[in-house]
Amino acid sequence: MNIDVCNGDADGLCAVVQWRLHAPQPACLITGLKRDIGLLERVQAVAGDELLVCDVSLRRNRLALLRLLQAGVSVRYFDHHAPGDVPLHPLLQAHIDVAGDTCTSLLVDRYLGGRFRAWAVVGAFGDNLSAVADGLAADMGLSLEDRLRLQTLGEAINYNAYGDSEQDVLWAPARLYARLVRYPDPLAFLAHEPVAAELAARRQGDLQQAQGLAPHYQDAQVSVYVLPDAPWSRRVSGSLSNALARAQPRRALALLRATAGGGYVVSVRAPLSAPQGAAEFCRGFGGDGRAGAAGI
Protein backbone atom coordinates (compact mmCIF):
# COMPACT_ATOMS: atom_id res chain seq x y z
CA MET A 1 0.00 0.00 0.00
CA ASN A 2 1.15 3.54 -0.76
CA ILE A 3 0.54 6.22 1.87
CA ASP A 4 1.18 9.92 1.29
CA VAL A 5 1.54 12.29 4.27
CA CYS A 6 1.83 16.05 3.91
CA ASN A 7 1.03 19.37 5.44
CA GLY A 8 -2.20 20.76 3.99
CA ASP A 9 -0.64 24.06 2.90
CA ALA A 10 0.49 24.95 -0.63
CA ASP A 11 4.01 23.59 -0.18
CA GLY A 12 2.91 20.22 1.15
CA LEU A 13 0.09 19.66 -1.32
CA CYS A 14 2.09 20.79 -4.35
CA ALA A 15 4.96 18.51 -3.35
CA VAL A 16 2.69 15.45 -3.28
CA VAL A 17 0.93 16.54 -6.48
CA GLN A 18 4.29 16.49 -8.27
CA TRP A 19 5.15 13.06 -6.91
CA ARG A 20 1.81 11.49 -7.83
CA LEU A 21 1.91 12.96 -11.32
CA HIS A 22 5.34 11.34 -11.59
CA ALA A 23 4.23 8.05 -9.98
CA PRO A 24 0.45 7.80 -10.55
CA GLN A 25 -0.29 4.96 -8.14
CA PRO A 26 -3.29 4.71 -5.82
CA ALA A 27 -2.33 6.13 -2.43
CA CYS A 28 -4.02 6.95 0.84
CA LEU A 29 -3.52 10.63 1.70
CA ILE A 30 -3.08 11.79 5.29
CA THR A 31 -3.06 15.56 5.63
CA GLY A 32 -4.59 18.33 7.70
CA LEU A 33 -4.62 22.02 8.41
CA LYS A 34 -1.46 24.08 8.79
CA ARG A 35 -0.91 23.35 12.46
CA ASP A 36 -1.66 19.63 12.24
CA ILE A 37 1.98 18.75 12.82
CA GLY A 38 2.02 15.23 14.28
CA LEU A 39 0.69 13.59 11.13
CA LEU A 40 2.87 10.46 11.23
CA GLU A 41 1.13 9.43 14.45
CA ARG A 42 -1.99 8.81 12.33
CA VAL A 43 -0.24 6.38 10.00
CA GLN A 44 -1.09 2.71 10.38
CA ALA A 45 1.19 0.74 8.09
CA VAL A 46 2.82 -2.68 7.90
CA ALA A 47 5.98 -4.17 6.45
CA GLY A 48 6.15 -3.62 2.71
CA ASP A 49 4.06 -0.47 2.68
CA GLU A 50 5.61 2.62 1.08
CA LEU A 51 5.30 6.01 2.76
CA LEU A 52 5.87 9.42 1.15
CA VAL A 53 6.26 12.30 3.62
CA CYS A 54 6.30 15.92 2.43
CA ASP A 55 6.61 19.14 4.42
CA VAL A 56 6.22 17.54 7.86
CA SER A 57 8.78 18.22 10.59
CA LEU A 58 10.93 15.17 11.27
CA ARG A 59 11.85 16.59 14.66
CA ARG A 60 8.19 16.58 15.73
CA ASN A 61 7.47 13.17 14.17
CA ARG A 62 10.65 11.31 15.05
CA LEU A 63 9.13 8.68 17.37
CA ALA A 64 6.35 7.85 14.91
CA LEU A 65 8.90 7.66 12.09
CA LEU A 66 11.06 5.23 14.06
CA ARG A 67 7.99 3.09 14.82
CA LEU A 68 7.17 2.85 11.12
CA LEU A 69 10.73 2.06 10.09
CA GLN A 70 10.99 -0.65 12.73
CA ALA A 71 7.74 -2.12 11.39
CA GLY A 72 9.34 -2.51 7.96
CA VAL A 73 7.75 0.47 6.21
CA SER A 74 9.80 2.16 3.47
CA VAL A 75 9.84 5.95 3.88
CA ARG A 76 10.76 8.64 1.37
CA TYR A 77 10.98 11.97 3.25
CA PHE A 78 11.11 15.46 1.68
CA ASP A 79 11.21 18.44 4.02
CA HIS A 80 12.80 21.83 4.73
CA HIS A 81 12.27 22.13 8.49
CA ALA A 82 15.18 21.64 10.90
CA PRO A 83 15.10 17.86 11.46
CA GLY A 84 17.29 17.32 14.50
CA ASP A 85 19.13 14.01 14.17
CA VAL A 86 18.07 12.18 11.02
CA PRO A 87 17.81 8.42 11.69
CA LEU A 88 20.17 6.20 9.74
CA HIS A 89 18.03 3.34 8.49
CA PRO A 90 18.09 1.30 5.26
CA LEU A 91 14.36 1.92 4.71
CA LEU A 92 14.64 5.72 4.99
CA GLN A 93 15.45 8.02 2.07
CA ALA A 94 15.72 11.52 3.52
CA HIS A 95 15.81 14.58 1.24
CA ILE A 96 16.06 17.45 3.72
CA ASP A 97 17.40 20.92 3.04
CA VAL A 98 16.87 23.76 5.53
CA ALA A 99 18.22 26.57 3.33
CA GLY A 100 16.12 29.72 3.58
CA ASP A 101 15.57 29.92 -0.18
CA THR A 102 13.99 26.50 -0.63
CA CYS A 103 10.82 24.63 0.29
CA THR A 104 9.56 21.07 0.03
CA SER A 105 7.97 21.58 -3.40
CA LEU A 106 11.34 22.75 -4.72
CA LEU A 107 13.08 19.72 -3.19
CA VAL A 108 10.67 17.37 -4.99
CA ASP A 109 11.16 19.41 -8.16
CA ARG A 110 14.92 18.98 -7.81
CA TYR A 111 14.55 15.21 -7.35
CA LEU A 112 12.25 14.90 -10.38
CA GLY A 113 14.47 17.05 -12.59
CA GLY A 114 11.86 19.77 -13.07
CA ARG A 115 9.30 17.49 -14.69
CA PHE A 116 6.31 19.26 -13.09
CA ARG A 117 8.04 22.52 -12.27
CA ALA A 118 4.96 24.71 -12.61
CA TRP A 119 3.50 22.99 -9.54
CA ALA A 120 6.77 23.60 -7.67
CA VAL A 121 6.41 27.28 -8.59
CA VAL A 122 2.89 27.30 -7.11
CA GLY A 123 4.18 25.71 -3.90
CA ALA A 124 7.04 28.18 -3.62
CA PHE A 125 4.73 31.15 -4.17
CA GLY A 126 2.48 29.79 -1.45
CA ASP A 127 5.44 29.42 0.89
CA ASN A 128 6.28 33.12 0.44
CA LEU A 129 9.38 32.45 -1.69
CA SER A 130 8.11 34.91 -4.27
CA ALA A 131 11.45 35.89 -5.79
CA VAL A 132 12.59 32.28 -6.16
CA ALA A 133 9.24 31.20 -7.61
CA ASP A 134 9.06 34.10 -10.05
CA GLY A 135 12.61 33.44 -11.22
CA LEU A 136 11.81 29.78 -11.93
CA ALA A 137 8.61 30.72 -13.73
CA ALA A 138 10.44 33.29 -15.85
CA ASP A 139 13.09 30.68 -16.74
CA MET A 140 10.23 28.44 -17.91
CA GLY A 141 9.21 31.17 -20.35
CA LEU A 142 5.93 31.98 -18.61
CA SER A 143 4.46 35.41 -19.25
CA LEU A 144 4.10 37.93 -16.46
CA GLU A 145 0.34 37.36 -16.52
CA ASP A 146 0.73 33.60 -16.04
CA ARG A 147 3.32 34.09 -13.31
CA LEU A 148 0.89 36.32 -11.43
CA ARG A 149 -1.85 33.71 -11.88
CA LEU A 150 0.39 31.03 -10.38
CA GLN A 151 1.25 33.35 -7.50
CA THR A 152 -2.43 33.97 -6.80
CA LEU A 153 -3.08 30.22 -6.89
CA GLY A 154 -0.22 29.40 -4.52
CA GLU A 155 -1.28 32.05 -2.05
CA ALA A 156 -4.91 30.90 -2.22
CA ILE A 157 -4.02 27.23 -1.59
CA ASN A 158 -1.83 28.28 1.32
CA TYR A 159 -4.58 30.49 2.76
CA ASN A 160 -6.96 27.53 2.68
CA ALA A 161 -4.78 25.59 5.17
CA TYR A 162 -5.29 28.03 8.04
CA GLY A 163 -7.99 27.45 10.63
CA ASP A 164 -8.68 25.71 13.91
CA SER A 165 -10.95 23.16 12.21
CA GLU A 166 -12.14 22.26 8.74
CA GLN A 167 -15.26 24.34 9.44
CA ASP A 168 -13.03 27.44 9.20
CA VAL A 169 -11.80 26.71 5.67
CA LEU A 170 -13.56 26.63 2.33
CA TRP A 171 -12.14 23.26 1.25
CA ALA A 172 -10.66 20.49 3.41
CA PRO A 173 -7.04 20.10 2.21
CA ALA A 174 -7.54 16.44 1.24
CA ARG A 175 -10.55 17.38 -0.88
CA LEU A 176 -8.62 20.19 -2.53
CA TYR A 177 -5.69 17.87 -3.27
CA ALA A 178 -8.02 15.51 -5.14
CA ARG A 179 -8.80 18.37 -7.55
CA LEU A 180 -5.22 19.59 -7.90
CA VAL A 181 -3.71 16.22 -8.80
CA ARG A 182 -5.96 15.87 -11.85
CA TYR A 183 -3.92 18.48 -13.71
CA PRO A 184 -0.27 18.16 -14.81
CA ASP A 185 -0.33 21.93 -15.46
CA PRO A 186 -1.65 24.32 -12.78
CA LEU A 187 -2.68 26.78 -15.51
CA ALA A 188 -5.09 24.11 -16.76
CA PHE A 189 -6.39 23.74 -13.20
CA LEU A 190 -7.06 27.47 -13.14
CA ALA A 191 -8.88 27.27 -16.46
CA HIS A 192 -11.20 24.44 -15.45
CA GLU A 193 -11.74 24.61 -11.67
CA PRO A 194 -13.70 27.51 -10.13
CA VAL A 195 -12.37 26.66 -6.65
CA ALA A 196 -9.21 28.69 -7.33
CA ALA A 197 -11.19 31.90 -7.89
CA GLU A 198 -13.40 31.13 -4.88
CA LEU A 199 -10.40 30.75 -2.59
CA ALA A 200 -8.70 33.88 -3.94
CA ALA A 201 -11.85 35.97 -3.45
CA ARG A 202 -12.37 34.76 0.09
CA ARG A 203 -8.71 35.41 0.90
CA GLN A 204 -8.98 38.99 -0.37
CA GLY A 205 -12.09 39.54 1.71
CA ASP A 206 -10.36 38.37 4.88
CA LEU A 207 -7.29 40.49 4.12
CA GLN A 208 -9.54 43.54 3.72
CA GLN A 209 -10.93 42.91 7.22
CA ALA A 210 -7.37 43.03 8.53
CA GLN A 211 -6.38 46.22 6.71
CA GLY A 212 -7.14 48.52 9.61
CA LEU A 213 -5.05 46.53 12.06
CA ALA A 214 -2.45 48.70 13.78
CA PRO A 215 0.74 47.30 15.34
CA HIS A 216 0.42 46.39 19.01
CA TYR A 217 4.15 47.17 19.27
CA GLN A 218 6.74 48.32 16.77
CA ASP A 219 10.32 49.52 16.69
CA ALA A 220 13.11 49.51 14.10
CA GLN A 221 13.68 45.75 14.44
CA VAL A 222 10.26 44.16 15.05
CA SER A 223 6.52 44.55 14.53
CA VAL A 224 3.93 42.79 16.70
CA TYR A 225 0.25 42.50 15.75
CA VAL A 226 -2.62 40.99 17.75
CA LEU A 227 -5.71 39.49 16.09
CA PRO A 228 -9.05 38.60 17.69
CA ASP A 229 -10.38 35.05 17.90
CA ALA A 230 -12.69 35.00 14.88
CA PRO A 231 -13.14 32.75 11.83
CA TRP A 232 -11.70 35.37 9.46
CA SER A 233 -8.60 35.89 11.62
CA ARG A 234 -8.01 32.14 11.90
CA ARG A 235 -8.10 31.87 8.12
CA VAL A 236 -6.08 34.96 7.26
CA SER A 237 -3.19 34.71 9.73
CA GLY A 238 -0.77 33.06 7.30
CA SER A 239 -1.57 35.35 4.37
CA LEU A 240 -1.40 38.40 6.60
CA SER A 241 1.95 37.35 8.07
CA ASN A 242 3.41 36.93 4.59
CA ALA A 243 2.00 40.25 3.37
CA LEU A 244 3.33 42.15 6.39
CA ALA A 245 6.72 40.47 6.06
CA ARG A 246 6.98 41.59 2.43
CA ALA A 247 5.90 45.12 3.33
CA GLN A 248 8.50 45.35 6.14
CA PRO A 249 11.44 43.28 4.87
CA ARG A 250 13.92 44.57 7.47
CA ARG A 251 11.71 43.86 10.48
CA ALA A 252 11.00 40.60 12.27
CA LEU A 253 7.29 39.99 12.68
CA ALA A 254 5.10 38.35 15.32
CA LEU A 255 1.39 37.89 14.68
CA LEU A 256 -0.56 36.76 17.74
CA ARG A 257 -4.10 35.44 17.43
CA ALA A 258 -6.21 35.14 20.56
CA THR A 259 -7.80 31.75 21.25
CA ALA A 260 -11.04 30.87 23.03
CA GLY A 261 -9.01 29.37 25.89
CA GLY A 262 -7.35 32.68 26.70
CA GLY A 263 -3.96 32.06 25.11
CA TYR A 264 -2.47 32.91 21.75
CA VAL A 265 -1.37 31.17 18.57
CA VAL A 266 1.75 32.94 17.30
CA SER A 267 3.21 33.20 13.80
CA VAL A 268 6.81 34.46 13.64
CA ARG A 269 8.61 35.68 10.52
CA ALA A 270 12.30 36.53 10.44
CA PRO A 271 13.15 39.63 8.37
CA LEU A 272 13.17 38.83 4.67
CA SER A 273 16.49 40.65 4.52
CA ALA A 274 17.95 38.14 7.03
CA PRO A 275 15.70 35.04 7.09
CA GLN A 276 17.25 33.22 10.05
CA GLY A 277 16.37 32.40 13.63
CA ALA A 278 12.57 32.03 13.61
CA ALA A 279 12.51 28.30 14.41
CA GLU A 280 15.17 28.61 17.09
CA PHE A 281 13.20 31.40 18.74
CA CYS A 282 9.90 29.50 18.63
CA ARG A 283 11.40 26.28 19.98
CA GLY A 284 12.22 28.22 23.13
CA PHE A 285 8.45 28.50 23.68
CA GLY A 286 7.49 24.97 22.63
CA GLY A 287 6.96 25.81 18.97
CA ASP A 288 8.85 24.91 15.81
CA GLY A 289 9.19 25.75 12.14
CA ARG A 290 12.02 26.73 9.85
CA ALA A 291 14.64 29.46 9.74
CA GLY A 292 12.49 32.11 8.09
CA ALA A 293 9.03 31.30 9.45
CA ALA A 294 7.85 29.43 12.52
CA GLY A 295 5.02 29.23 15.02
CA ILE A 296 4.06 28.70 18.65
Rank of each mutant, 00 (worst) to 15 (best):
D146V: 08
L142I: 08
V121P: 04
P90G: 05
D97G: 10
D164P: 01
H89M: 13
G100C: 10
A118Y: 05
E166N: 03
S105C: 13
A133H: 01
M140V: 03
W119G: 10
R110T: 14
L91E: 13
R115C: 04
A161C: 12
Y162I: 09
A118V: 02
T152F: 00
G123S: 07
G114M: 12
L150C: 04
Y159H: 08
G154N: 08
A120N: 09
D97A: 04
A138I: 03
L92A: 10
E145A: 14
R149Y: 01
Q167L: 13
L107H: 01
S105Q: 07
G163S: 04
S105D: 10
F125K: 04
D97N: 15
F116E: 01
V132T: 12
E166A: 14
T104Q: 03
G123P: 07
Q167T: 13
H95A: 04
L106D: 05
D101H: 14
S130W: 05
G123W: 03
D109K: 02
L129F: 01
C103A: 15
S105K: 06
S143Q: 06
C103K: 02
A131C: 05
A99W: 01
H95G: 06
L136I: 15
S143V: 10
V122M: 06
D134K: 11
V169W: 05
D134F: 03
Y162R: 05
Y111M: 12
R147Y: 03
F125C: 11
T104W: 02
E166W: 06
L153I: 09
C103R: 02
L91F: 06
R115K: 11
G135M: 13
D109N: 10
D109I: 01
V132G: 06
R115Y: 00
I96W: 01
G113L: 09
Q151G: 07
L91M: 08
Q167Y: 07
E166D: 14
H89G: 11
G113V: 12
R149K: 14
F116H: 13
V169K: 03
L106T: 01
L106N: 00
L150Q: 05
R147M: 06
S143P: 05
V108I: 07
A120M: 11
N160L: 11
A137I: 02
G126F: 04
G113W: 02
L92T: 12
H95E: 13
L92M: 08
A94C: 07
G123C: 02
V98T: 15
